[in-house]
């Protein structure tokens, strides 16, 4: 079921609400205000909104400078420009300097659709995960984005938010008990664990349904925080089901598959298959088409699950 709310509007409205009580919050955008629905923030807090123009490196540096004054800056850009375009600024001016900036990178992976290969980041989480102490978070739906905001604001260091902008599949309701770094079990199972993030969560749930029809019991876990990753949940899933499939809208190199494998190999080796982009660039196309091209469909997850189980 598609959510009624866009994630971008949910975040922007929630930021406005938080900012009414917390004057530390400021927002910076790099000429993509209209794409991020941050105009509501600008309208209410014109002095606390900074459109820096098409200059992501300067935006990150400015945010770092503002954080030294106790501000909590949220920077916005499309995910490739929020990460790889200004990697050194994030690495040095923000992370190495010990400063606190919340960076939103929108339109992850195939969500970039018609903007194509230049705008289609399959590498943003790998880039950000390589920075010491950087929190890497991909909200699953608008409810999670909203619930996560308090922790993101109050987390004492920087956070990267890999944000699908529009209406995602609705996975959670208001009963969601959210914590950064804490995986969420969506369905229990005993034969295989499907670990998914972002738009892949819905597909993992669909794959679990299909597998159930064939008598295979799949556990589904949403790992929304790729770093720090919930090692305990991964080890528990590996022990219980003896096989894991990771599902990500991202290159498997350095992404969720890598992050889970790092834990599994060291702590509890079991067969593991990675559903994700296999060392490819992006291209224009609709989400559904691109998901076929890059092997991100429900069918790909079902196939990977059976392969993982067969290797037990």
């Amino acid at each position: 079921m598609t959510d009624e709310r866009e994630i971008r509007q949910t975040l922007a409205s929630a930021l406005v609400e938080k900012a009414r009580k917390d004057d530390r919050i400021v927002v910076l955008d790099a000429d993509l205000m209209s794409c991020h629905a941050t105009k509501v923030f600008k309208q209410e807090f014109p002095d606390r909104f900074f459109n820096v123009g098409i200059a992501e490196a300067n935006m990150i540096g400015m945010a770092a400078g503002m954080s030294t004054f106790g501000k909590i800056p949220f920077t916005y850009s499309f995910a490739p420009f929020a990460t790889r375009r200004c990697f050194d600024q994030i690495f040095i001016s923000v992370a190495y300097a010990g400063l606190n900036v919340k960076m939103v990178g929108s339109e992850p992976g195939v969500a970039a659709e018609a903007n194509g290969g230049t705008h289609m980041p399959f590498e943003d989480m790998a880039i950000m995960r390589s920075i010491p102490k950087m929190v890497c978070f991909e909200p699953t739906d608008a409810t999670m984005m909203e619930k996560a905001l308090d922790e993101i604001i109050n987390y004492p260091s920087s956070v990267y938010i890999r944000m699908f902008r529009k209406k995602a599949a609705k996975i959670y309701d208001d009963t969601l008990d959210f914590h950064l770094g804490k995986a969420i079990e969506l369905r229990d199972g005993s034969d295989v664990t499907l670990i998914a993030s972002g738009i892949m969560v819905e597909r993992a749930l669909q794959a679990a349904d299909e597998l159930a029809g064939e008598g295979i019991s799949a556990k589904v876990v949403n790992i929304h925080t790729w770093k720090p990753i919930d090692k305990e949940a991964i080890v528990a899933a590996a022990k219980k089901t003896g096989a894991i499939v990771t599902c990500e809208n991202h290159n498997i190199f350095g992404g969720l598959g890598s992050a889970v494998a790092e834990v599994v190999v060291e702590k509890c080796p079991v067969p593991l298959k990675m559903v994700g982009v296999k060392d490819e660039f992006g291209q224009v196309g609709k989400n559904a088409y691109l998901s076929e091209v890059y092997g991100l469909t429900t069918a790909d997850i079902v196939k990977a699950a059976k392969e993982a189980i067969s290797r037990k």
Binding site: F50, A57, F69, Q89, S93
Partner: peptide, 16 residues
């Protein structure tokens, strides 16, 4: 990188 940081500080100081 330092000049961008200084610019951010100048904006923050002005705001405060």
């Amino acid at each position: 990188q330092g000049l961008s940081v200084a610019v951010g500080m100048a904006e923050a100081a002005r705001l405060d």
